[in-house]
Simulated scan of single mutants.
Amino acid sequence: LLYYFRSLGAYLPHVLPEFLLEPEDYKIWSKDELNMRDVKTSDGFSDKNVFVLEDSTFETISKRAWADVLLQIYKVFVLQRVSSHSKTDPSSLESMQDMPRIKREPLSSNIYSSYERKILTWLNSNYEKNRKIVWKDCQKGGVPPRRWIVNFDQDLLDGLVLAAQVAAYCPYLIATHFIRMFTNPRTYQQFLHNSLILVKAMHAVNLNMDIKV
């Protein structure tokens, strides 16, 4: 199954099949592997190392492996259906003309697929278009500076980019939620503050996704 996902473009070099087993099944697998290694060692043919994980370590690695597999399944089966419709917005042309472009050609990145780069382009466009609108009256840092969004972790960490996306479709959340965000967060408390506001905004439009405050 992992080979099949990889053939479709899933990036899972760190996920081993045994990481996806149930804990009890993993114990059985480990025992069988150790027995097979001992047999081969006695015959002088073993060149394979077997690493048996502790229960707590296996649980942590297994959860991460399953999360990565599910995200990659979403990537190869859902994101590939994302299409882009170019619309010329005169009001945003001036602000976007100096921004670097995310290349969509298949070979322009060895990390993100072409459809993931479409999402990055969408994030960049909405953030640059809306940052001055969402936080023009912000009392906790003013209008945030422009940024070039090139990944889905560090560049989204402060919640501002995601808030700009939500505000683009639900502008009524600006006055009730997003205006209270820190636009230049520096401490963990400020990052948490922004995250809580973003989650509450999602709850306000019934976009819960099992996110707890």
Score class of each variant (00 low, 15 high):
residue 115 Y to A: 03
residue 115 Y to F: 13
residue 115 Y to Q: 15
residue 116 E to K: 12
residue 117 R to P: 12
residue 117 R to F: 06
residue 118 K to R: 11
residue 118 K to N: 03
residue 119 I to E: 06
residue 119 I to R: 00
residue 119 I to K: 02
residue 120 L to N: 00
residue 120 L to S: 05
residue 120 L to D: 02
residue 121 T to A: 04
residue 121 T to N: 10
residue 121 T to C: 05
residue 122 W to F: 01
residue 123 L to W: 03
residue 123 L to P: 09
residue 124 N to G: 02
residue 124 N to V: 05
residue 124 N to I: 01
residue 125 S to V: 10
residue 125 S to D: 05
residue 125 S to M: 14
residue 125 S to P: 06
residue 126 N to R: 03
residue 126 N to S: 05
residue 127 Y to N: 01
residue 127 Y to S: 03
residue 127 Y to Q: 07
residue 127 Y to F: 05
residue 129 K to Q: 15
residue 130 N to Q: 04
residue 131 R to M: 04
residue 132 K to V: 12
residue 132 K to C: 13
residue 132 K to M: 11
residue 133 I to R: 11
residue 134 V to I: 13
residue 134 V to Y: 09
residue 135 W to Q: 07
residue 137 D to M: 08
residue 137 D to C: 10
residue 137 D to L: 13
residue 137 D to F: 15
residue 138 C to D: 14
residue 138 C to H: 08
residue 138 C to P: 09
residue 138 C to E: 14
residue 139 Q to N: 11
residue 139 Q to L: 14
residue 141 G to E: 13
residue 141 G to N: 10
residue 142 G to H: 15
residue 142 G to A: 11
residue 142 G to N: 12
residue 143 V to F: 07
residue 143 V to E: 11
residue 143 V to Y: 13
residue 143 V to W: 06
residue 145 P to M: 14
residue 146 R to Q: 11
residue 146 R to G: 15
residue 147 R to T: 07
residue 149 I to S: 07
residue 149 I to L: 06
residue 150 V to Y: 06
residue 151 N to P: 02
residue 152 F to M: 04
residue 152 F to A: 09
residue 153 D to R: 14
residue 154 Q to G: 12
residue 155 D to V: 07
residue 155 D to Q: 02
residue 155 D to M: 00
residue 155 D to L: 08
residue 157 L to C: 13
residue 157 L to H: 06
residue 157 L to P: 00
residue 158 D to Q: 08
residue 158 D to A: 10
residue 159 G to F: 10
residue 159 G to D: 06
residue 160 L to C: 04
residue 160 L to N: 01
residue 161 V to N: 04
residue 161 V to E: 07
residue 161 V to M: 10
residue 161 V to D: 06
residue 161 V to H: 09
residue 162 L to T: 07
residue 163 A to L: 05
residue 163 A to Y: 01
residue 163 A to M: 01
residue 164 A to S: 12
residue 164 A to H: 06
residue 164 A to K: 03
residue 165 Q to C: 14
residue 165 Q to H: 11
residue 166 V to D: 08
residue 166 V to Q: 07
residue 167 A to K: 07
residue 170 C to A: 05
residue 170 C to G: 00
residue 172 Y to M: 01
residue 173 L to N: 03
residue 174 I to S: 05
